[in-house]
Design a protein around this nucleic acid. Sequence first.
DNA 1: TCTGGGGTCCTAGGACCC
DNA 2: TCTGGGGTCCTAGGACCC
Length: 407
Amino acid sequence: MNDRIILHLDMNAFFASVEQQANPALRGKPIAVIGSSGRTVITTASYEARKFGVKTGMAIWEAKRQCPQIILVVGDNHKYTCTSTRIFSMMLDYTPLVEVFSIDEAFLDVTHSLKIFGAPERIAYLLKARIKQSFGLTCSVGIAPNKLLAKLASDMKKPDGLTIIRPDEVSQIIDQLPIKDLCGIGSRMERHLNLLGIRTIGDLGRFPVDILKRKFGVTGQHLHDMGLGMDDSPVVPASDQDKIKSIGHSMTLRRDVSLRQDILKYLLQLSEMVGRRARRYGVSGKTVHLYVRYADFYSSIGKQQTLANPINQSDDIYKAAIDILDTIELQQPVRLLGIRLTSLKYQVAQLPLFPQERRKALMVNAMDAVNNRYGDFTVTFASLMDTEKKGSHVISPAWRPDGCQRR
DNA sequence: TCTGGGGTCCTAGGACCC
DNA sequence: TCTGGGGTCCTAGGACCC
């Protein structure tokens, strides 16, 4: 497995760049894409804004303090999904082995494409040129013998970069890089490793593997491999990928909420969002999770309940969520609520036999059809009538585009 | 108006069955 | 008069990714 050639392509400031292309007045200016809800953060900042220190995850007021002239744009998920789907389909012209890693990132295994296209750099240049020409967007590409190193490489030159790590250069290139550059080492793991005196990737590779294993279990071996730049995980195309394992929605409320009736209204809305998505995918779930984040931001509680049978009707999810809520004694006003459905079963949609349930299922199908066509919450429960209809307000770079499955 | 939202994977402990 | 142990399911929480 030493002779693979993996390419990692990462769109530069994707959401912000798409907006700048859509609206020429925004080009060359510091802009940031944000969410539509009241308490939102910076989702993506343009490179012009990044120069001022504006970063993903930053509060709006902080971004404005760093860069008073920043232009804020409410994100349009549909726009990004469409663009990324078209970009991913371009990649399939060079290899069938394309793994979508997020809405703006993918791995390509081009090992067997070289006979047709020549050097991997050539594939990278072709892709970069086509993406630039079709969408006006730039990306950074990394080429390496595995996914770990390809991702590391694409991060090394931004924007519009191309970085190659050849097998014989691996140790020299990674030796002095900080461990947090590795995909899989976050801030907590970084701190743990720092305490062991490990700061660079080279340090990690030289550290005794048995101590890592004793301290981190299975992860220890993985850490050791990463330290040596080793990774034999395959590029898995969408068609071979495991089925989705959970469906959830959460929302930070406009204001902290204490009244039960207010909480229930949000839970009904979340249940409808989760249920509708589950029905669209043709799945039901046996376990319902409720997540509550309190007003202080740091404390939270999560509880789950497993049912006798899998469900995907919004009102069934809602009932389960209320059941869970009733077991919790809320400690503070609520800042965020989340509902997630897990233990998913994939089953062919079938109308229930009994008349009453059958009528309900038919009605839900009809409601789903209207909402799919005219936007979320066009037809909904009476108590949600004043809910905003603005389509999916969810924006997140981790959003998996629905339409990126091959063929 | 300080701090979003969608996921996956792992661990650890308890219940229960054989 | 002794209290083993494997497997599976469930719950809670944390780390990590984008």
